[in-house]
Design a protein around this nucleic acid. Structure first.
Lengths: 223, 223
DNA sequence: GGAACGCTTCGGCGCGCGCCGAACTGTGCC
DNA sequence: GGCACAGTTCGGCGCGCGCCGAAGCGTTCC
């Protein structure tokens, strides 16, 4: 796969919309994606086949459903990098504007936390010495102990995925925490109902329990 | 600029060839790029205008020449990431095969060292404790002293560019050193004639002085 | 068995864009 | 001044591809 071929897969409005939607890290059905991208099911089906053949997406068939998701964290990172390169186009409706505002407050970025919440968490962890950010991010011994105390165990390093990775937040224009630790943190937050999926997209709602938890564990005051 | 628009700029064979050529970090004239990409000057001219308008390239006009280069390190990193995503297509000629072999030994990757040499340098610096690679790369105090002793001063951190960044090497399938330290190291190596540009592309030739220098300073044995 | 449903395959339509050559502009050299 | 040369603009050509609807296939539910 050459650079031009790979870029070509993302160079179409419909396919790009699909990939960005899948940045929420979940698996979507072909029909859902067709509706989202406002194209006929037949059109979406063709796009999905191309994205899968190109290694961008992975599929899982269940009965009469075809579930697809991003092929892995590297792909998600690539798409994040590309989308944060240019400024996002302005919202064209009230509905979209509301969605944007919700996503700016808190959202998932593939498998970790982003938006105002994500940046606040990253800032707090650096301030409290749980993560060092001199010349690249790294988890400190204090950070390891903190994770352990909370019962959060990052998945063992498989392949080349770094423990932490900084990810540029396109709404905040600052970096938040990615990598396996970022993923584990996000999974724990969802699992313990500190945050909940909202609106069927990438947006998250912070629960009262979450407000308390973030204050207790990270000294973050959320509005 | 949307994701699809940005990807669209890289989704053309000719434009992709131009961008990859510019990964050598130097400025090329429009005519050179037209010849390289095997298209008419008029065609190349149009492509350059589009890439500049999209923020991928920066131009500098001098007399009747139009010099272009990549707009910055972020763009270079983006293109590197995209090109290392898929396996490179096989070489189609002896000439190209020779070029590939030379580039596999030593080459520039935008503004830092890559290829077998780049990986060897990165490995040696990690082995000697100049750079730590637990959960992301970071320069150690010993590394700062080492750079200082050699009279290599990385450019002060302007913007968000990290001091060191790992960059996946597409020939070695391992990481080498990027970031401002990687750039300073490469500039010093060129400046002190440890390596020389070879063949007009990204390939580098290691000089006898370079062989000695890499052995003395980093305990690397080069063939 | 039959109907509803999710998805795929196929044929056909039309736009977008990458290409070139010819003509033109502006610079540098003699 | 005159010529050579780098680069640009413009018009026209043709391929590629994204779109849809219709028809077909397999699954699920009644």
């Amino acid at each position: 796969m050459s650079l031009a071929e790979l870029a070509g897969l993302l160079a179409d409005r419909t396919r790009a919309t699909i990939c960005v939607a899948l940045l929420d890290g979940r698996a979507w059905t072909a029909g859902e994606l067709a509706k989202l991208a406002k194209v006929a099911p037949s059109t979406a089906s063709g796009h999905l086949s191309r994205l899968i053949a190109g290694g961008i997406l992975a599929e899982e068939r269940q009965g009469r459903h075809r579930y697809v998701r991003l092929a892995g964290p590297e792909v998600a990172a690539l798409i994040e990098d590309l989308s944060s390169f240019g400024a996002p186009p302005p919202a064209r409706s009230l509905r979209e504007s509301n969605r944007r505002r919700a996503e700016a407050r808190a959202r998932t970025c593939y498998d970790h936390l982003a938006g105002h919440l994500g940046v606040a968490v990253a800032d707090a962890m650096v301030r409290d010495g749980l993560v060092a950010d001199d010349a690249g991010l790294a988890v400190t011994p204090a950070g390891v102990a903190w994770l352990d105390r909370l019962g959060i165990a990052p998945a063992p390093a498989r392949g080349r995925r770094p423990l932490v990775r900084s990810c540029l937040d396109w709404t905040e224009r600052r970096t938040h925490l990615a990598g396996t630790v970022g993923a584990a943190l996000c999974a724990a937050a969802l699992d313990r109902h500190w945050v909940e999926r909202a609106g069927g997209g990438r947006a998250l709602r912070i629960t009262p329990a979450g407000t308390t938890a973030f204050r207790t564990h990270l000294n973050i005051e959320l509005p």
